[in-house]
Simulated assay, not measured.
Amino acid sequence: MRIDLRTLGVVVRCRRFAGRHRTLVDAGLAALLLAVQFSQRAPGPAGAVLVIALHVPLIWRRARPVPAFWATLALAVVCDLHAWRYEPRQPFVFAVLMVAIYAVALYEPDRRHLWAAVAAGELASAIMLASSRSWAEYSGALLFASALLAAAASLGVVRQTRRAYLAELEERARRLERESDQQAQLAVAAERARIAREMHDIVAHNLTVMVALADGAALTVTRSPELAADTMHTVSATGRQALGEMRRLLGLLRSDSPAPAPQARAPQPGFADIDGLIAQVRTAGLAVTVTQHGTPVEAWGPGAGLTAYRLVQEALTNTLKHAGPGTNARLDLRYEPHGMELSVTDDGRAPARTSPGTGGHGLAGMAERVGSYDGTVESGPLPGGGWQVRARLTFGASA
């Protein structure tokens, strides 16, 4: 089936015009019905005025359908009772009533107004057809008029239901689109927060280790050049490791980036990498004692190991940065069937540090990490001096 684009364009423009100028379109419909009525029979002056008045309420059939109907009904009865009488077989009065009832059914959401309008229309039809010559003629004409009014009301109800259904579909589509946009924004925000936490942990930890190593190398360069050189090699290796992890994270932010290099596809750190983290921190000059009870459960998954690793990393990094020289730290790891508890305690005498949610981004990131595993984190000074970070994570039996 071929569609004429020019004709389709004309139809679209006409519908847009009708949507913008509804009152004008309704006035045109009333004028068309009036022209049909005058073509049937030419009334006298008084009858012409009544016929014109009968069609005037149709101009507001969309804006005020109920008042327009009652005005039309009253004028229809007046026209019938006027000295100039129309033949009952001429359906012009019923045509106007049909349009008025159709408008009530289509544009008035309260169905009670429609039932009242149909009942009043039936009563008016019975009155206007009372001049029939026989009962058979009267009953047949009344049945025909009732069928016309019922058809108009039914058509209006069907169209109103269809319009309400389409409006609901459009609203649902808009709501789903808004919800989809919101979900996408939330997902983007969550991913950005995750990447920001990872970048903070990587940069803060590795830079802290590098600074500590560089300070140590500067102090020993005159007394032990070989030890200073080895320390700087460690600084270089730490920096390369940090750059590799930074490239991997930044690659996640680029959708058009090529396939990552093999070293960029290295798995995220986990429980097994905590020993290497402790060794790195010890190299930077922090004495760390590790106590471990139990073993991790494989069913916890890699996310659990990454969270534990980052918590230990952040706590030890803060100790390196804030606790001062000569500090000793203790790491306690306790693995349970459905979770774990870890604590990092130091004996540093540095000024008070911030607790989660009151200052540093690292401690706030720790709170966010444990929140994803229905856990808790506490951080604060110890009564006899030093600082403690304690976290509890719940992974579940088959997390």
Rank of each mutant, 00 (worst) to 15 (best):
A284E: 06
A229R: 08
P260C: 06
Q292V: 12
V377Y: 02
R111N: 11
W70H: 15
G396H: 02
S131C: 12
G362Y: 09
G270A: 10
Y309I: 10
L249R: 15
Q268D: 13
S398A: 14
R62Y: 01
G244H: 05
A18C: 13
L58S: 05
L250M: 15
D374T: 01
A266N: 03
Y86L: 14
E122S: 08
F69Y: 09
A367F: 05
T394Q: 14
R254D: 07
A153G: 08
E378T: 03
Q388A: 09
S372Y: 04
D4L: 04
Q388Y: 03
V77H: 09
A391K: 09
V235N: 03
A71G: 04
V297W: 05
L333A: 06
L106G: 00
E177M: 00
R282G: 03
K321Q: 05
L142E: 05
Q313I: 01
R41D: 12
G216R: 10
T7I: 02
R20S: 10
G285Y: 02
Y335P: 07
A308C: 15
G362P: 15
A259V: 10
A53Q: 08
L81N: 14
V370A: 05
R133F: 08
G375R: 06
Q263P: 00
R349P: 05
H322A: 03
S379C: 14
E122V: 11
A364H: 06
A30P: 08
I127H: 11
H205C: 15
G270L: 09
S257H: 03
S146G: 09
S125K: 03
V297Y: 04
A228M: 06
E170Q: 09
G244C: 02
G357R: 02
L155F: 09
A130K: 00
Y102L: 08
L316S: 03
V312W: 06
G305Q: 07
H233Q: 13
R13L: 12
A147K: 04
A218T: 09
M232F: 11
L29S: 07
Y102I: 01
Y86K: 11
S236Q: 03
R16V: 11
R174P: 03
V158K: 01
S180K: 14
D332S: 07
R248N: 02
A189T: 14
E378V: 01
A27T: 09
L382G: 13
H205F: 15
A315D: 07
D256L: 14
P351M: 00
E198H: 15
V209I: 08
L320C: 11
H322V: 02
P45Q: 02
A190C: 08
R175N: 07
R310A: 08
V56P: 00
V77L: 12
W70Q: 12
R13Y: 05
R64G: 05
L393F: 13
P109D: 10
D256F: 15
G348E: 01
P356E: 05
T289D: 11
V235Y: 01
T231A: 10
V51M: 08
Q313R: 04
F92Q: 08
A284W: 07
I101Q: 06
T234Y: 09
V49R: 14
